[in-house]
């Protein structure tokens, strides 16, 4: 975490602002998460479901003695749950002092991208996605959506407003 911070600090000094992203895949779409927000990546073994909880929350996980709230990125994006019972991956994120695990289909490599090259969201993108996305990077073979971590984890407030 500290290393990542110094990293960004250096990056801001250089004219081309290089930012590192952890890439994850959900339903075939690739997303980028700012690396300094990512604590760890882990395999989800056992999960406790919480009755009556918001649908975005898949349950609670025991991550090395810490209770972590598992948030489904699929459900956050309005997608259906993955049907295959493969091993589930989660990205550990921190928000407001609480630990969250963002459930994704796959975790990919770390990419270093120029912040200036980021494009705004296409206007006709699903509003649900727009709310979670900071912008789009054009990779060689596909498009990378940069996720706004705070927005992804802010569904409770969203519903209260609505």
């Amino acid at each position: 975490m500290r290393a990542a911070n110094t990293n960004t600090a250096i990056a801001t000094k250089t004219p081309t602002r290089l930012l590192e992203y952890v890439t994850v895949v959900v339903a075939g779409q690739i997303f980028g998460l700012p690396i300094h927000r990512v604590h760890d990546v882990f395999v989800v073994s056992e999960m406790t479901t919480v009755p009556l909880c918001p649908p975005e929350i898949s349950g609670l996980l025991n991550l090395r003695g810490r209770v972590v709230t598992a948030v489904s990125l699929r459900r956050r994006l309005g997608l259906t749950d993955a049907s295959n019972g493969e091993r589930r991956m989660a990205v550990g994120l921190e928000n407001c002092g609480e630990a969250h695990g963002l459930l994704v289909d796959e975790v990919g490599e770390v990419l270093e991208l120029d912040h200036a090259a980021m494009q705004p969201n296409p206007v006709h993108l699903d509003p649900r996605w727009v709310g979670l996305s900071q912008g789009v990077h054009q990779l060689k073979d596909r498009l990378l959506i940069i996720l706004d971590v705070d927005a992804v984890l802010a569904f409770e407030t969203e519903r209260e407003v609505a």
């Binding site: 406790t48 919480v50 909880c53 025991n62 209770v67």
Partner: peptide, 24 residues
């Protein structure tokens, strides 16, 4: 409880049992 689930009146918190499972 996580702040996102604190509104569920039914639970006062959670814990990790001896076998490592998270229990409400």
């Amino acid at each position: 409880m996580s702040s996102k689930m604190r509104h569920i009146q039914l639970f006062s918190g959670n814990t990790i049992l001896g076998d490592g499972a998270v229990v409400l």
